[in-house]
Amino acid sequence: MLGYIIRRILAIIPVMLIVAIFVFLLLRLTPGDPAAIIAGDMATPEQLNRIREAMGLNDPLLVQFFTWMGRLLQGDLGVSLISGTDVTTMIGQRIFPTLNMALLTIVIAVMIAVPMGVVAAWRHRSWVDYAVMSFSVLGFSVPVFVIGYLFILVFAISLDWFPVQGYASPTDKGVLAFLDRAILPALTLATIYVALIARMTRASMLEVLGEDYIRTARAKGVRESKVLFRHALRNAAVPILTVIGTGFALLISGVVVTESVFNIPGIGRLTVDAILARDYPVIQAMILLTSGTYVVVNLIIDISYTIFDPRIRY
């Protein structure tokens, strides 16, 4: 087991290396002068030079790569072209709102989605099933910012239940103030995640409910609730976990959008501001950070399979 975990952690290295190479080449292989792309059309020669210097664009490609990788390994993500601040510091300042939001979202999503999917599968082809499926398709189809603005329109402006925008840190201002401001954005973010997880739970449960051992459980006279949650859900867990992991990518793009809609000072907003300002070192750092998080989240999920399925042994 420990050996497996070590092997899995080692397997991250090539994946992250390829991501890094990709991110590195993204800028360098773009046709045209990277400095001009970053600085925009109106840049003066001095500005261009400053950018070239800052990013080491005057060196040969391989030298650039190794210098860049070397800094990266020391945790140096470069310096923002706009503010001149160290990117690592910038991320450090902005990460907590995002983390808090993301955690709240995942908890809400799993708590809503899994029971939804289970009931839909159990009552396959009933009105509950159709309702869950309709909600799920809808969740996939409405852009997250439209959902965000609709929530603001209904719950903040018309009903005045929540503040329109903003953020309060749970540690400074207290959990209630945090929740007051975080519920709407978290629900917005959760919509697509709920759609995804509910759908997978339903599909996975439908498959498991057709298995012989479910028939055996019923032949034993086991209560239906026990058949569903003890026998079926545990067997259906692995695909559900997997989709929670891969859906994490959706969560990240949702964060970027939701933070701008609700004006939350997290790393999503940081990214949007960086795009508008073409602050390439920041964009680059964000890609590396989010990819790294994605890989680690999926590693944890992979390892957690063993809890649910004793057949998976390493």
């Binding site: 793009s253 795009i275 890989v295």
Partner: peptide, 23 residues
Amino acid sequence: MRIMDSLMAIPSILLAIALVALN
């Protein structure tokens, strides 16, 4: 598949943003 795994690890919206920002 290694390359594909790596590409999957990059959140699509950020990758798209970077590509558009550059191109």
